[in-house]
Design a protein around this nucleic acid. Structure first.
Length: 145
DNA sequence: GCCAACGTTGGC
DNA sequence: GCCAACGTTGGC
């Protein structure tokens, strides 16, 4: 089992969209490193769902329900076809009791090396198991009040 | 709205 | 191959 974090702007596609649809095709990734991370995702991997720009922070937990396949939206952008962009399908597992804001992640010494901070512009990234567990814990009601 | 970080493009 | 210019992401 591997752990990941994906970013989305809530104005564009937020957690509530995800819940309404019940399943997301994680389309539109146009960065090599992010694409390679999508390709490395395996069925059942767990994925932190992060809101960027507006109240940045981790809001929920999802899982990989379909491994990488060609991005269907490339059909609208023929010039992109040669790059081999891919998508995965995700389904929600749960909303965190409370969001884990970026500010709190930055303030936590145990998360000093998390890719979210070190590579702030990457939109799909691996998360270490210990980092993953800690963020989930921080999102539980009884912790970090 | 501003700006830092960083990826991409294109001239040389 | 280097690097300046430019565009985008995303935090504040």
């Amino acid at each position: 089992m591997n752990y990941w974090l994906v970013k989305s702007e809530p104005d564009h596609y937020g957690w509530h969209h995800f819940i309404e649809q019940g399943r997301a095709i994680w389309e539109g990734v146009r960065n090599y490193q992010a694409r390679n991370n999508l390709k490395a995702m395996q069925l059942g991997d767990q994925v932190l769902f992060y809101h960027s720009v507006i109240k940045p922070g981790v809001v929920g937990l999802a899982k990989v329900v379909q491994e990488a396949y060609p991005d269907p939206t490339v059909a609208n952008e023929p010039a992109q076809a040669k790059f081999g962009w891919v998508v995965v399908d995700l389904e929600p597992i749960m909303l965190l009791d409370k969001p884990v804001p970026l500010a709190l992640i930055k303030a936590e010494p145990l998360l000093a090396n998390i890719s979210l901070i070190r590579q702030s512009r990457l939109s799909v990234m691996p998360i270490r198991p210990d980092e993953f567990e800690l963020i989930l814990k921080m999102g539980q009601k009884e912790n970090y009040e």
